[in-house]
């Protein structure tokens, strides 16, 4: 049986991890490669590296980093952040990434999804959707949540799938950072509306939240950042918890 995936997400700026991560077991917690290897050893199923580098000149640091990650990491990883062109994607896949996630560029030009899936295969095209609930309606947001669109989340997820997306990474802005649990309702609705896997993101605070979103929420995978970085939950502990709750996980 296919296991439910646990995916730590690392924010990267200028080639370094962003937050003041404190791990005693590694020398340099600012080095994404060291942190990635630690997570892999602990049983992370995949990793996501999100580039939030502000300046174009420093983007090259991210490409260099992806090369180093690819050389050293023995589990799959996805890269995202500001990716739009075929050349970007080609370069990142060549560097060893399994998948790329696209967000704003896909909404602004949906044909981009079809173009990338046709060129590189659906399996490596993750469409990331930032969504927010306003008066009971879930809208798609762009530009790291700064720009609201009139698109409804369910419609966009279905359209992304029909254009060739291989996976949806769904982040609820209402829940992100709250540690009060994932957005179960919209995650379940999206998961039931598409045939491709759905990764839930935003709101993880304790193991029970993962249990809920991977069962009731219908998610195929769950992504979190700070709770792993600050060791509020360790991956082995989380996975034991999931297994005890009857979920199929890789230990």
């Amino acid at each position: 049986m296919l296991t439910k995936r646990i995916i730590p997400c690392l924010d990267i700026r200028d080639g370094r991890t962003v937050k003041g991560i404190n791990f005693e077991s590694i020398r340099d917690a600012g080095d994404p490669v060291e942190l990635a290897r630690l997570y892999a050893e602990q049983g992370a199923d995949e990793l996501v590296f999100l580039d939030i580098t502000a300046t174009v000149e420093k983007r090259t640091l991210f490409y260099d980093l992806v090369e180093r990650i690819g050389a050293q990491l023995n589990i799959p990883f996805t890269v995202g952040g500001g990716i739009s062109s075929k050349a970007d994607v080609s370069r990142l896949l060549q560097a060893g990434a399994e998948k790329v996630s696209i967000n704003s560029a896909a909404v602004r030009d949906p044909a981009r999804i079809k173009e990338l899936a046709g060129e590189f295969g659906s399996q490596c095209v993750v469409v990331a959707i930032d969504t927010k609930c306003i008066d009971g309606e879930w809208y798609v947001f762009l530009d790291g949540g700064r720009t609201k669109t009139e698109r409804r989340t369910l419609d966009w997820a279905r359209e992304a799938e029909s254009l060739g997306a291989g996976e949806i990474l769904l982040t609820s802005m209402n829940h992100d950072g709250t540690k009060d649990g994932f957005a179960l309702e919209i995650t379940r609705a999206v998961s039931r509306s598409v045939d491709i896997p759905v990764i839930a993101s935003g709101g993880a605070g304790k193991p029970q939240h993962f249990v809920e979103v991977l069962s009731e929420g219908g998610a195929d995978a769950a992504l979190a950042a700070s709770i792993f970085h600050y060791q509020e939950i360790t991956i082995p502990e989380l996975k034991r918890n999931l297994r005890e709750s009857g979920l199929c996980v890789r230990l």
Partner: peptide, 17 residues
């Protein structure tokens, strides 16, 4: 064949025994 009710997604993506 995808089967939403049974949670069978396509592509088959992830770790399996």
């Amino acid at each position: 064949d995808a089967d939403r009710a049974a949670g069978i997604k396509v592509p088959h993506m992830g770790w399996n025994a």
